[in-house]
Computed example of a mutant assay.
Amino acid sequence: MRKSKLIAGIAAGALVLVAGAGLFLGDYVYTSGTKVPCAINADDLENTPQQFFVAGYNSGPFPGDGWNKWVGHDLSDWWLENAKVEDVRIDVAEGVTLAAWYIPASQETNKTVIVTHGIGTSKRDFNTLLPTAMLVKGGFNVLLVDQRDTGESTCTDGRHSAGQEESSDFAQVAKWLNTEKGIPASSLGMFGVSGGAIATSLLPAKTDLVSAFAMEGTIFDFNAAATKEVEFQGYPGFLWQLALVSAQLFHGVNLAETAVTDSIEAAGVRPMLILHGDIDQRLDYQSSVDFYNYAKGVGANIELETFTGADHTEGMLSETDRYAQTLVSFFSEHLN
C-alpha cells in the first residue's frame, strides 16, 4: 500500500513538473512570438504621406529574392506631396493612446477610412502608406493609425494580442471619429494590412460605427494560423496551445476571446472585401478562401479579390492600378 502511494505521489509530482515546464515553455513562446517593437522601424523613419519608399534589401514584408526585386521601386506617383496631415492622439483605453495621422481628401467629404498596419511595423511602412495614398487620391479622408505597442502609440507590454485588444481599440477610434470629426457610421470604413486585417476582421463584433471592412489578407482558422506563425518563428507548432493557455493564465490575455466566425456573423449586411496574393508566405491564401466561403455560407456581403502570383502584400506593387481601383470602388460603393 505504501509503495503504491509512493509511486502515485511520484507520478503526480512528475506530472506537475511536466505541466509546469510546458507552461513555462508556452509562456516563452507567447512572449517572444508576439513581441512587437514599441518604436518605428529604422528603415521607415523617413517615410511620411508626402514621401515614402519601399523597404530595403532583405527587409521587405516577405523573404527572399522575390522581395529583393522590388528594392528601389518608384512609388513617387503616389506621394501625397500637397496633403494636409493632422497629427492626432486618441485615447482608447485607460493609459493607452494611439498616434495617428488624419489626412483629409482634397474636396470636403464625410467618407472616411481608418487604415492600419501589420504586426511589427507602423503607419510609416510603405505598404500602409501606399493604400492610404490610393484612398486619399480616390476622394476619401483617411485616419492612418499606429496600433498599441507600435510606432508612436502607447507601449503597454510590447506584444500584440492577435487582434483582440487591437480591435477593441479601433472601436474607440471609430467612436472618436464619430464624435470629434462628425463622421456618421454610414460614411466610415476600415482597411487593415496583414496583422491589421486580423484586427479589422474582428471589428464588426466590437462596433456598429463602421459600415464597410477591407482586408489585405486575413485569417479564418485562428488556431491553424497561430500554429503556422509559431512554426514561422522557429518553434514546434504544437507549442501554440501551451502559449494560448500561458497568455491567459500569466498575462490575462485571451487570444481567442472574439471568434472570427462570430465577427463575420455580426457584420450582417455590412460589406467586406479581402485582397490577397495567392502565394502569400505569411498569411495563407487558403485562409482568406475559407473566410470568404464561411461568410458566403451565412449570407454575408463579401468579395475576394485574388492577385495571382503575389506574395505577402505584393499585390499592391505588382498590380498597383488594379489594387487602387478595387479598394476605391469598394468604399465608393458602400460608404454614403
Rank of each mutant, 00 (worst) to 15 (best):
S106R: 06
V142D: 05
F126K: 01
V113A: 10
V113C: 06
F126S: 05
G95A: 03
G120R: 02
R124C: 05
A100G: 15
P104V: 08
A99F: 10
K123I: 14
T121M: 13
F140Q: 06
L98Y: 10
V113K: 10
G120K: 01
Y102S: 04
I119T: 15
V136A: 05
G95M: 11
P131H: 00
G95K: 09
V115Q: 01
T128Y: 06
T109A: 14
K137A: 12
V142S: 02
I119S: 04
T97A: 02
N127V: 10
T128H: 04
G118Y: 06
L129H: 03
K111L: 11
I114D: 08
A99C: 11
I103G: 06
V136K: 05
N141Y: 10
K111G: 08
S122L: 04
Y102N: 03
T128C: 09
S106T: 15
I103A: 12
G95N: 05
L130G: 00
T109L: 13
S106N: 11
L135M: 08
L129P: 03
N110F: 15
F126C: 01
E108P: 01
G118M: 04
V115C: 09
T112V: 12
F126N: 03
P131T: 04
A99I: 11
P131Y: 02
N110V: 10
W101P: 01
K123E: 10
W101K: 03
L129F: 05
G95I: 12
E94G: 10
T97S: 13
W101F: 12
T112I: 09
T109N: 10
